[in-house]
């Protein structure tokens, strides 16, 4: 990727690096959660589909970290960013780190996130930063599939049996507090939106609501009431489960530091 980006001035560049790492963290952490299912899915087809989505998410994380590292120009590669930070330095959305729960929970979490990201990447296609537009070009196709796959499951489960409907309703209620954070736009996110380098998260909310209410209506599920939601991921304040996730993720890099693998 092109390291220099003449269009971005220095304060905005710091914001852009932070925002790229935030997005990278979302994809890394959710990819990690999804990969926990590998070998344990409800059917063989899902043992192929979930790793597929996880692979896409990890690929997007790699592209985002690599670009952030090149803008930062301090010698951090994708792995230095992905592995060598303290918990409060990870700035993913809380929804991405929530434990998998059951299959209904995992599918709905993915749908909430992918529906957001798909619209985000669609806007980012016209980014004034050509590297971001290129990342979006690939990611928009992948996230389109993620939305389709997970929406089909959310509908099937919501309108399947009594048990699957109840589990789906539980998932809506459990995940609702983590939706609001998707749309939060702080100074860093806003700075990146000024020159249309990255979409502002709040600009996605209306479109997300339209698409989600269509899907959830087909699933016979209510919309999540998310206005009283949780927040803090973007500032590095996590839920209790994050430390365990990082303990696994970082295990080898912590036990055997500074080695080539």
């Amino acid at each position: 990727m092109d390291v220099a980006n003449a269009n971005v001035d220095i304060p905005n560049q710091a914001s852009l690096i932070s925002q790229l790492i935030r997005l990278g963290d979302d994809h890394l952490v959710l990819g990690h959660r999804l990969s926990e299912w590998c070998g344990h899915a409800p059917m063989l087809e899902e043992d192929l589909a979930m790793p597929n989505i996880a692979l896409d998410l990890l690929g997007q994380a790699r592209a985002l970290y690599t670009y952030a590292g090149s803008l930062e120009n301090k010698g951090r590669d994708e792995d230095a960013i992905a592995y060598n930070r303290l918990e409060h330095e990870y700035t993913n959305l809380l929804i991405c780190e929530r434990p998998n729960g059951d299959f209904a929970h995992t599918m709905l979490r993915q749908l909430f996130f992918s529906c957001f990201m798909h619209q985000y990447w669609q806007q980012a296609l016209s980014s004034t930063d050509e590297n971001i537009a290129a990342i979006a070009g690939k990611a928009v196709k992948e996230s389109d599939y993620h939305v389709r796959h997970t929406a089909q499951w959310v509908i099937r489960l919501g309108d399947g049996t009594d048990e699957s409907a109840q589990r789906s309703l539980d998932a809506v209620q459990q995940l609702a507090p983590y939706v609001n954070e998707l749309f939060e736009t702080d100074d860093i996110a806003a700075a990146c939106a000024v020159n249309k380098v990255l979409p502002g998260p709040s600009s996605i909310e209306a479109g997300w609501n339209v698409q989600m209410s269509d899907i959830l209506e087909q699933a016979k599920l209510p919309m999540p009431e998310y206005q009283m939601g949780q927040s803090g991921g973007r500032q590095g304040r996590h839920t209790e489960s994050m430390g365990y996730l990082l303990a696994e993720l970082q295990f080898l890099q912590r036990s055997y530091p500074n080695m080539q693998w």
């Binding site: 590998c38 070998g39 996880a54 990890l58 790699r62």
Partner: peptide
């Protein structure tokens, strides 16, 4: 699959995940 979440680099992690997926 026991080592996917603990793979030491992102390249190794994606390769392992893809491999286990191939087995499926």
């Amino acid at each position: 699959a026991n080592w996917i979440t603990r793979a030491p680099t992102l390249r190794r992690k994606t390769a392992l995940l893809a491999k286990v997926q191939d087995e499926g």
